[in-house]
């Protein structure tokens, strides 16, 4: 299928992109990697009047460590992040999550910022950013501001960004050395949109108790969720099978899935709970094993 007719403008830098957005208003869309937006346009589910292409904004393609956190430019290709040793050392959960994003060909083109700004509640990166308490830097006519991930995602395909703002960077806290990470995902086929995905990062204190746990889920609400209740059950506890089960048992109350053509709501709820169990178990198994 082909998209409806659309105008096109290329921004040379962030300021130009912001100016174009201000000029064209709410019918404009930023074109990053285009791996979600273009199919939506082809299916006529999205019909922006103009695309503002930021693929030539090279200043937004970078990965670096910054003051104990990992800073990723919005236009960094997902595949570059997935294969980056800097990323693997700082946030080993990220390459694992990216492995589930589409296929390699999608990730060669798809960007970190594009996926986050697209705010699909079923996709992996928004959930990861939420679960790891990341921060999003956006730039608009009034300058830069930083938004916490849990405030950034406000609904399906909807973020706290204004229409004239561009996402420029994603900041993720560095995970302590020895953190075990796992992504458990239920998709009918590899590369399909996940029905439910759960991501876990777990670090243990010398006495074996959990001193850091981060849990995120996608596909279970209109926004990606950090599973605070489940984290609270595990924090400070010995990670026994019972403790993990108790943490997983809180999930049903934390999530708010809706049924669709891919799976009924009850199945998503069951799967979220079971995948939390699997992901926490797998993360603990992998503690000390480098990604």
């Amino acid at each position: 299928m082909k998209p409806a007719a659309v105008k096109y403008a290329r921004a040379g830098d962030v300021q130009e992109a912001v100016a174009l957005l201000s000029e064209h208003g709410t019918d404009a869309k930023v074109l990053a990697g285009g791996q979600s937006l273009v199919p939506l346009m082809n299916f006529r589910l999205a019909s922006p009047s103009i695309l503002i292409d930021i693929n030539r904004v090279n200043e937004l393609a970078y990965v670096r460590e910054d003051n104990g956190s990992l800073l990723i430019g919005a236009m960094t290709r997902q595949r570059d992040v997935e294969t980056s040793p800097v990323v693997a050392a700082a946030v080993p959960l990220l390459p694992q999550a990216l492995h589930h994003v589409g296929h390699v060909t999608n990730r060669n083109r798809g960007t970190v910022g594009g996926s986050v700004a697209h705010a699909d509640p079923a996709s992996e990166l928004p959930a990861l950013v939420t679960g790891l308490a990341g921060e999003l830097t956006v730039e608009g006519p009034k300058g830069q501001r930083t938004i916490a991930a849990e405030d950034f995602f406000v609904g399906t395909f909807t973020t706290a960004m204004e229409y004239d703002e561009v996402l420029t960077a994603v900041r993720l806290p560095r995970l302590p050395a020895g953190t075990g990470v796992a992504v458990e995902e239920l998709a009918r086929r590899h590369g399909d949109f996940a029905i439910v995905a759960v991501m876990a990062a777990v670090h243990l204190a010398p006495d074996g108790s959990v001193d850091l746990v981060r849990l995120a889920a996608s596909g279970v609400d209109s926004v990606p969720l950090r599973l605070h209740s489940a984290e609270a059950v595990l924090a400070g506890a010995q990670p026994t099978a019972d403790a993990i089960a108790a943490a997983a048992a809180t999930v049903a109350a934390s999530v708010n899935p809706t049924g669709d053509v891919h799976a009924p709501a009850s199945y998503r709820r069951d799967m979220a709970q079971l995948l939390v169990k699997r992901a926490v178990g797998a993360a603990i198994e992998r503690i000390g094993v480098s990604a």
Binding site: F43, R188, R189, H190, G191, D192, F193, V261, H262
Partner: peptide, 16 residues
Amino acid sequence: YRERTLESYRLPLAGD
């Protein structure tokens, strides 16, 4: 029909 595209009408892939 409820399934209306090849996204939800899932054909098996080589790996399946």
